[in-house]
Design a protein around this nucleic acid. Structure first.
Lengths: 239, 239
DNA sequence: GCCAGGCATTAACATTTGTTAGAGTGCACT
DNA sequence: AGTGCACTCTAACAAATGTTAATGCCTGGC
């Protein structure tokens, strides 16, 4: 059940069986969310953190003019709101972008982990630090990359992250995002989003149809994106 | 010496004297950096984390075309690279934007804190989570705010953060950033940065001269920015 | 099979933002 | 006082991006 979490945390450092048991023991009940449903509401003060077992979700903020911006995409094995364990109040919402199967980890049990299992605590902390590293990469992409490069970077990042939790299929992966939703990731209008996707298709490095992305030329895609996976900390080493 | 750190961490939850002593015990030597010097190099693997005692620094990445993007601004009381304690490898650089007085905290002693002081560990973790929350707010600003609103938001954020560590003077604060550097924060060209600053000046909510920002109409500035400080977690509560 | 609704795509035009170039300003150094 | 330099500010034009609107395609419900 928690395989994807073990794969996600375990990519950074070895996870012992005892630690896996502690994580499993922190879990409470499961739940399914339909596409478009809010998994966590902005302004709420959750007493548990949500782990995605399967599906795609996103953090987002909505502005007064109605504009929406996604600040992260979350896949299987990701805690969507582990930060709320200490931040307490959600300053943004989390929405299901596909049918999502999730399980909730109780904050009081996470707290017990911080008191009794320092190595596991560091791994959970690290998980939120990688989140932050991804945020920084998005800031760079939004500020200084061309839009084509930004999109290419997103494809690279998602491919690598999905590969860790075994949700890729060869060089393909499922990306159930409409162009309007993608526009809310890159901060573009829908029309321009369409142009940018067209441009990336035109260079021939990806095939993008039916919500499935197939990478045709990984090397060239990585070049266009200037993608360097260092920020994902995928090296297994003592933490 | 560590007053600004105590103020920064202590805004979220009470810091005991014992915890202050643990923090002080983690510190090793101090150092001064001149404006423009790199405090931490991209790609390095530091064995200590850097706390700013005074000055302004920034995290940044440089792209192949020479473009630079700042991903955060760090003020007194901030650890600029606490994340490197667990991420290990720096995927970005940190540069001094003013003369910086810093002190280094040894990673082995931080590790000891995670093993012996769970509440303090949570506060340090929280510190990095607030970092992440600020990143998300920047993503929203870059993607969906007008440039004027983005700039106004930055001014609000810096004012509030500097107030916590007592680096404001009434409604003024020192902001030693050239327009070119500011452009690397917002992801704009220098020319357009100049236009945007002009626009914010024109509405009359700030006075901006000699690297000093004075907020003339806080209420209106906050409105332009749609600034909601929730993300900074400034409420003191058990963590 | 027909229809309604969501989504992708394109066109025409408006607005924002970037680029290049140059003028003005203040300050450190001689 | 004169010079050089970094920074601010402006102008003119080019390129990127947004807006509005329309078209076509697919799919689920009937």
């Amino acid at each position: 059940m928690l395989e994807s979490l073990y794969l996600n945390l375990g990519q950074h450092d070895a996870l012992s069986d005892a630690e896996k048991a502690l994580l499993a023991g922190a879990m409470t009940f499961e739940r399914h969310f339909a596409t478009g449903q809010d998994i966590v509401a902005s302004g709420s003060r959750p007493t548990y953190s949500t782990l995605i077992l399967d599906g795609l979700a996103a953090r987002y903020k909505v502005l007064e003019n109605g504009g929406r911006q996604f600040t992260s995409l979350q896949v299987a094995g990701d805690f969507v709101d582990l930060h709320a364990f200490l931040l307490k109040t959600m300053d943004h919402g989390i929405v299901a972008l596909s049918p999502c199967h999730v399980i909730f980890a109780d904050h009081s049990r996470l707290r017990a982990i911080t008191e009794e299992a320092s190595h596991l605590t560091r791994l959970l902390w690290l998980d939120t630090l990688v989140d932050g590293a991804i945020h920084r990469e998005w800031i760079v992409a939004m500020g200084r990359r061309s839009k084509t490069s930004h999109l290419a970077h997103l494809v690279c990042e998602l491919f690598v992250r999905l590969q860790v939790v075994q949700r890729t299929n060869g060089m393909s992966f499922h990306l159930p995002l409409s162009q309007a939703e993608l526009a809310d990731v890159l901060g573009l209008s829908v029309v321009h989003m369409n142009r940018v996707i067209g441009a990336l298709r035109k260079v021939g490095v990806v095939n993008w149809a039916n919500h499935t992305v197939t990478i045709l030329d990984w090397h060239r895609l990585q070049e266009i994106a200037e993608f360097d996976p260092t920020y994902l900390s995928m090296m297994r080493e003592p933490r």
